Amino acid sequence: MNRQRWRRLGVCPITDGAGATYVAANLALAAARLPNSDVLLVDLALGHPSVAMQMGIAGDFRFISYLRGEDLQPDEFVTRIEGDANLRCFTSGRAIPGGAELLQDEVTRERIDRLVAESGCDLAIFDLSPVLGTDEGLAGLPVMDAVLLVADGRAGNGQQVTDCQRLLADMPPLLGVVLNKAEDMG
């Protein structure tokens, strides 16, 4: 991502329950441990946000107000992870209806751009909704520089990966597919 000068990585599950939040959170924690690395972890799975729970922090609904264009500064609702000064989280902590519509709104897209640009971060990792089964997952992809898909190693199948690749044809580049929960495969 550095070579391409990409800063926004969308971590997107193929289906619900694939574990994309787990992957996004651990990727953010690992990236924040690199020397001189400033990382944002942003929960854009608006219909089922779970970054706050995964990270053991409280969400702040002002994040949604910010995305909707209200006059707020990100420093007002950012959560810094204790013991990890290089990682900041943005999450509402509760579901909102109409997440796909919000993510397609030009004001929201400008706010996401602003959040990344003004933060000065080296990497912004976005936890997104599933590509299959929701419109919300696809709605968040156009503001990403690259996408990492997360497949469920227990319940997923190759056809789902193929379907996602077809849906992502005109989207940001696909960096790869993480097979999560594969240790349960016997």
Score class of each variant (00 low, 15 high):
7 R>G: 08
12 C>K: 06
19 G>Q: 01
20 A>C: 02
25 A>H: 07
27 L>M: 15
28 A>T: 02
33 R>D: 13
34 L>H: 09
36 N>M: 09
36 N>E: 15
36 N>R: 13
37 S>Y: 06
38 D>W: 15
40 L>S: 06
40 L>P: 08
40 L>F: 06
41 L>V: 05
44 L>E: 06
46 L>Y: 04
47 G>H: 02
51 V>K: 05
54 Q>T: 14
54 Q>W: 02
57 I>D: 06
64 I>Y: 12
67 L>M: 11
69 G>L: 11
70 E>R: 14
71 D>Q: 13
72 L>E: 11
78 V>R: 12
83 G>N: 12
91 T>W: 05
99 G>M: 06
101 E>A: 13
104 Q>A: 07
105 D>N: 15
111 R>T: 09
117 A>P: 06
119 S>M: 05
124 A>Q: 00
126 F>A: 07
128 L>G: 11
129 S>W: 06
131 V>C: 05
131 V>S: 10
135 D>W: 04
140 G>Q: 00
144 M>G: 06
145 D>C: 00
147 V>W: 07
155 A>S: 14
158 G>P: 02
164 C>I: 02
166 R>M: 09
169 A>V: 05
169 A>G: 00
175 L>W: 08
177 V>M: 04
179 L>I: 12
180 N>G: 08
182 A>C: 00
184 D>N: 14
